[in-house]
């Protein structure tokens, strides 16, 4: 097992290098000069511009810039953003907020998705099943920004059950509504996946054998149907954690959450290469790690999968 984990960590190295290089190249090729843009409407002071270019290595060729950036990462000095704040501090500020949001969304989609999916699967073809299926289709069909604004307006503004926007502290109660919006799409997928998986497992021979042992319906469902059905669902949830972290841009925009998505969006607009690359790199690492976690969980849930020997 430990060799497997070591191997997976070694695989992170090329992924990390590839991702940073690609993102760096994309930011480098963005049209427009970010330094000129900094001056806004004012005339460009060439001396200041040259000094800024040197500070951010923008006068160097692409390869040099990239290597300098790598060097800064390994010396744990990520440099500064255009407003002069250390990028490390910016990351430390925005990632906890988004992590809180993403984990709340994950808990929401996992809990309700699995519970509703299980009930729908066990009552296949009944009213509950049909209702939930149609509702999940509607949720999948409507774009997230429409759902976001809709819930913000009805629940936040009209009913006043939750705050329509998030304070700068981004506390857990603040984030409930955004987390629901963020998790809604995946909730529908988890529900459908659980339902299909449960239906498949209900007809498995070992479920019939379990019933023949004299187990109660509840025991059969809990021990023999639920665990087996969760294997594909866990895979989806793990991969989804990474997607939720990076995919929160729209939701964070709607609810004005001071998180990764918001900051990344601003950095892209102003062409702050190092900030963009730093944020994206952390996202890539989170994505890889959550996938590793899924694979380990998978081996634990399904003993047929063993990673060494």
């Amino acid at each position: 097992m430990s060799t497997y984990i070591l191997k997976r960590f070694l695989q992170l190295i090329p992924v990390f290098l590839g991702a940073t290089l690609l993102v760096y190249f994309l930011v480098f090729s963005l049209p427009g000069d970010p330094i000129v843009a900094l001056f806004g409407d004012k005339p460009v002071n060439e001396a200041v511009a040259a000094k800024l270019r040197m500070q951010y290595h923008l006068d160097q060729p692409f390869w040099m810039q990239y290597l300098l950036y790598l060097k800064s990462i390994f010396t744990f000095d990520l440099g500064q953003d255009f407003s002069g704040r250390p990028i490390a501090a910016v990351l430390g500020e925005v990632f906890p907020v988004t992590a809180r949001l993403a984990i709340m969304a994950l808990i929401f989609e996992a809990f309700f998705g699995i519970v509703f999916g299980l009930i729908a699967g066990l009552r296949k073809g009944k009213l509950f099943d049909a209702t939930v299926l149609v509702a999940s289709l509607v949720v999948i069909g409507i774009p997230i920004f429409v759902l976001g604004f809709l819930l913000q307006f009805t629940i936040g503004v009209q009913l006043g059950w939750a705050k329509p926007t998030v304070s700068s502290a981004a506390t857990i109660p603040d984030l409930i509504l955004p987390a629901i919006v963020l998790g809604l799409g995946s909730f529908a997928y988890v529900l459908r996946l659980t339902r299909t998986s449960v239906i498949e497992n209900m007809n498995a021979d070992y479920v019939r054998t379990a019933t023949a042992k004299g187990l109660s319906r509840f025991q059969v469902v809990r021990v023999h149907i639920l665990r087996n059905s969760l294997i594909p669902v866990i895979t989806f949830l793990g991969a989804d954690l990474g997607a939720l972290m990076g995919g929160a841009i729209v939701t964070e925009g709607i609810f004005n959450v001071p998180g990764v998505g918001n900051r990344l969006y601003r950095a892209v607009l102003s062409g702050e290469g190092p900030t963009v690359v730093s944020i994206v790199t952390v996202l890539v690492l989170i994505y890889c790690l959550s996938n590793l976690l899924v694979d380990l969980l998978y081996g634990w849930l399904d003993p047929r999968i063993r990673y060494d020997s």
Partner: peptide
């Protein structure tokens, strides 16, 4: 169903056909 659960196992047992698919692979 309640009566059947009482009977299954201790009054009526079953040995199924296919040993490959009748044991739960995860336990």
């Amino acid at each position: 169903e309640k009566r059947m659960i009482e009977l299954r196992g201790n009054s009526i047992g079953m040995v199924p056909q296919d040993p490959m698919s009748n044991l739960n692979p995860v336990w």
